[in-house]
Design a protein around this nucleic acid. Structure first.
Length: 483
RNA sequence: GCCUCCAUUGUCUAGAGGCCUAGGACGCCGCCCUCUCAAGGCGGAAACAUGGGUUCGAAUCCCAUUGGGGGUGCCA
């Protein structure tokens, strides 16, 4: 049995889209699962779309995700080069071979006149299909134009009758009428191969056994097979992947805001969570397990469990999954990652980050939401004293007016300002005032935080704030309460 | 328009003719825990798009309808 070889073949046109990350992931998982090779190939045949630095983004993203390619532009391999623009000279001879075999032909029609005919056809509500005009040119005429240096493209000569079909691993048997096949361009006027052509040539030359890619190629695959057959090459296994959607009718795209890997990372998502979640949109292990390390994914992965209906990317579930990863993080690691986010609000303030981290870890879904949750520590929000009311805690403004002044001397009298000391001292005092815990702790927490819900209770917050600020805030509360 | 693919709760999905009075997860709701919010524990509501077949029996097979996706480029 030949070794499995898969490939991820992105175009360096910008950032790494999450759909692309998922495609790369499935290719990687399958190759590793089968003990095969995962190849990275850069498809930059469209020079107009080339974006500086985009290749590096691809490298960095794949690396960050732990998808290490066995062969590629930077690491090399036996089938290089792995950048299509560097392979440019290699494609034309293959196209010429096809011409010789009658499977392809030179076409001298200009882009402009084709565009015109295309829009005219569209205006009539018809599908434009190249009419094989240049296929009827005589050998002499072709040679004359070639010699005269008339610009040309090379087109595939598709059959017009019958049916083309193939078997896809996820979609099963797929058939298309040949009458719909358009004679696609193989070599562009600039001498560069089209994606359609370079892709087939390279997949074959690089020994790709399984082609895993987006389902937008589902309908052009018969034409690729025509190419393989014309050359007498073995057709690879096709595994077409469904689209990752934003909602039922739109795919996840940059226009929707955040579809790039980097967007999610800068928002404070963990790569592991993102990968884990992405793996599950369109694939499932057949068990109830939903948390996977990369190694576990490799172990569980099975192309036969790939889904054939599009999946919506549910950020809410991603958030939950991310929060689970955050919760399981090592405390030191969490502190390290949270610190920059703490700093956004608390830089320069004398706050115990370690303790804050302990309180925040179970309350963090994505890191970018930390600042809003801890802002009150930096600055007491303006609040309505109505929030001193809490039915369940039997607290209201008058209870606050009564209890807060009592608290002041008690807090002042605490020796070392530790959470334990604050807790013990206040808990001892509460019964002596004839109050319920909630009647003291609710007003206290409201007074020092200025908000109804906080990460942590009164003792934790008082500790973080420090004695001075705690007392000051209680003073502010008493003023607000008119005392 | 033409070609083609898809169709289970709001979402990701399990389900490959009887195991389904449809399972799991997110979200939602309730309860417990609790000085709030989280976390955690427990419980609940929520789906086989529609219509025809096939079959003793259909979420599972076939057809149509509807809805949605993709393709229809000298883009990839």
């Amino acid at each position: 049995m030949t070794q499995v070889r898969t490939r991820f073949a992105p175009s360096p046109t910008g950032f790494m889209h999450l759909g692309g990350v998922r495609t790369a992931l499935y290719n990687y998982l399958f190759a590793k699962k089968m003990g095969g090779k995962f190849i990275l190939r850069i498809e930059d045949t469209d020079q107009e779309r080339f974006v500086e630095g985009a290749t590096e983004v691809i490298y960095d993203t794949l690396k960050a995700c732990g998808m290490n390619w066995d062969e590629g532009p930077d690491v090399g391999g036996d089938y290089g080069p792995y950048v299509q623009s560097e392979r440019k000279s290699l494609y034309l001879p293959y196209a010429q071979e096809l011409v010789k075999k009658g499977a392809a032909y030179y076409c001298f029609c200009t882009k402009e006149e084709l565009d015109e005919r295309r829009s005219a056809a569209e205006a009539r509500g018809e599908v434009f299909k190249y009419d094989k005009h240049c296929l009827r040119l005589s050998q002499e005429e072709i040679q004359r134009k070639l010699d005269a240096g008339v610009p040309y493209v090379i087109r595939l000569n598709c059959p017009t009758e019958g049916e083309s079909s193939y078997d896809d691993v996820v979609f099963g048997h797929i058939a298309f009428p040949n009458s719909d096949l358009d004679d696609m361009v193989l070599i562009k006027q600039d001498g560069m191969p089209t994606y359609n052509f370079a892709n087939v040539i390279d997949d074959h030359l690089m020994g790709i056994t399984h082609v895993m890619r987006g389902m937008e190629y589902l309908s052009s695959t018969p034409k690729y097979n025509l190419l393989y057959n014309a050359f007498g090459w073995e057709i690879p296994q096709y595994i077409h992947l469904t689209t990752v959607m934003r909602d039922a009718q739109h795919k996840l795209s940059k226009r929707d805001g955040d579809a790039y890997y980097s967007d999610f990372i800068s928002k404070g998502y963990l790569t592991e969570a993102l990968i884990n979640y992405l793996a599950l949109v369109g694939w499932n292990p057949g068990t109830d397990q939903e948390f996977f390390t990369m190694d576990e994914l490799i172990d569980a992965f099975d192309i036969h469990r790939l889904n054939n209906s599009p999946g919506i990317f549910d950020v809410t579930k991603l958030d939950w999954m991310n929060s689970q990863y955050v919760a399981r993080m090592d405390a030191d690691k969490y502190l390290e990652m949270a610190k920059p986010w703490f700093d956004r609000e608390l830089a320069g303030k004398n706050i115990d980050y370690r303790r804050l981290a302990e309180l925040m870890q179970s309350r963090t879904d994505i890191f970018s939401r930390i600042p809003e949750k801890i802002r009150f520590l930096a600055e007491l929000p303006d609040y309505d004293t109505a929030i001193f009311f809490n039915k369940k805690q039997k607290s209201d403004e008058s209870v606050a007016r009564e209890v807060l002044p009592l608290l002041l001397p008690v807090l002042e009298g605490i020796g070392e300002w530790t959470e334990q000391n604050i807790h013990d001292t206040v808990m001892v005092a509460i019964p002596t005032w004839g109050k319920k815990n909630g009647q003291v702790l609710w007003p206290m927490r409201i007074a020092i935080s200025g908000q109804e819900s906080t990460p942590g209770g009164a003792f934790e917050i008082a500790y973080l704030l420090g004695r001075e600020e705690t007392l000051r805030r209680i003073g502010v509360a008493l003023e607000k309460l008119g005392r």
